[in-house]
Amino acid sequence: MAQEKPLPFQYQFAAGAVAGVSEILTMYPLDVVKTRVQLQQGPGTGGEGYNGMVDCFRKIIKNEGASRLYRGITPPILMEAPKRATKFAANDSWGTFYRGFFGLEKMNQQLSILTGASAGATESFVVVPFELVKIRLQDRASAGKYNGPVDCVMKIVKQEGPLALYNGLESTMWRHVLWNSGYFGVIFQVKELLPKANGKSQQIRNDIVAGSIGGTVGTILNTPMDVVKSRIQNSPKIAGSVPKYNWAWPALGTVMKEEGFSSLYKGFLPKVLRLGPGGGILLVVYTSVMDFFRQWRGDV
């Protein structure tokens, strides 16, 4: 991550924003499919149910049109700049803080995991409202309730109160802590194991390999929390009633008890297909933009 020459926050923010938007424009349909499968309670046998990723893709295109694969993309696009910028900027900032706190000159594996977890917790505060609106728009049952992201926000605030926009903060925090600690921790380790890059093409290769493996490990670690986060955020708050899915760990137990352990990995295939390669895209674009800024500033 070029930690030897940290750039000011505004450059980290811009690089993270460009990386995030590039990743989401490429991989978003997989996110729609992932959410649909995660929200489905019980096995998806026939009818309107989904029997997996390919079946979900097919039924969405057949019954709702291909454009539905991009429904709800506005909140993620608006979210990507602050989200990815926060991810990488917070990771760099926490890394600097922890190196100073522990008196270490360079990052190590343990520090990379701690730094990633801290960056994930920081990032979660930024993304929760955007994630909630995205989930509501992606759910097929909500298709007729909202006329776009602004209408969705207004109706949530009016019907459930403004604090409802932060419904699922706890589960989102767990999701991001697990993903970021796995992602940044694995990136560090894989880069240490790969041959040292000589030239731009080898650097891109190393970033793709490290980022893809990191994204895959992060996805394995955080998918159960992602499943319950989707369920929690898709549960409208109704006065006088307690939602079935409310807090992360109890919701985890409810899903496992009612649907089995494998249900905690619903949507795993489209999620890992997105965030595995997506993790590589993120790292390549972020590193390339940061290198461009260093050249432009004359810091190389």
Rank of each mutant, 00 (worst) to 15 (best):
E105C: 09
S263G: 04
G95I: 12
L69C: 02
S181Y: 12
V217C: 03
W179D: 02
N234V: 12
D207Y: 05
I156G: 00
T172E: 12
P195E: 08
P82G: 01
E259Y: 03
Y286T: 05
M290W: 02
G72A: 06
I61N: 05
S235I: 10
P277R: 07
I77E: 03
V289A: 04
L282H: 10
Q110V: 14
W179P: 02
H176C: 12
E48A: 13
A239V: 14
L132H: 13
S288L: 10
T216V: 11
N180K: 08
S67M: 10
S124Q: 03
R68H: 10
K200H: 15
D55L: 03
F184C: 08
V228W: 06
I213P: 00
S230T: 13
Q109R: 14
Q12E: 09
N246T: 11
I60Y: 00
N246W: 13
F9A: 15
V217S: 01
Y183N: 09
I208D: 00
K87P: 01
C152A: 15
Q233T: 14
K134W: 12
F102H: 11
Q40R: 04
A141Y: 06
V289E: 01
F293C: 03
L30E: 03
G199R: 07
D151H: 11
G280W: 01
V128A: 04
L178T: 15
V133R: 07
E259L: 06
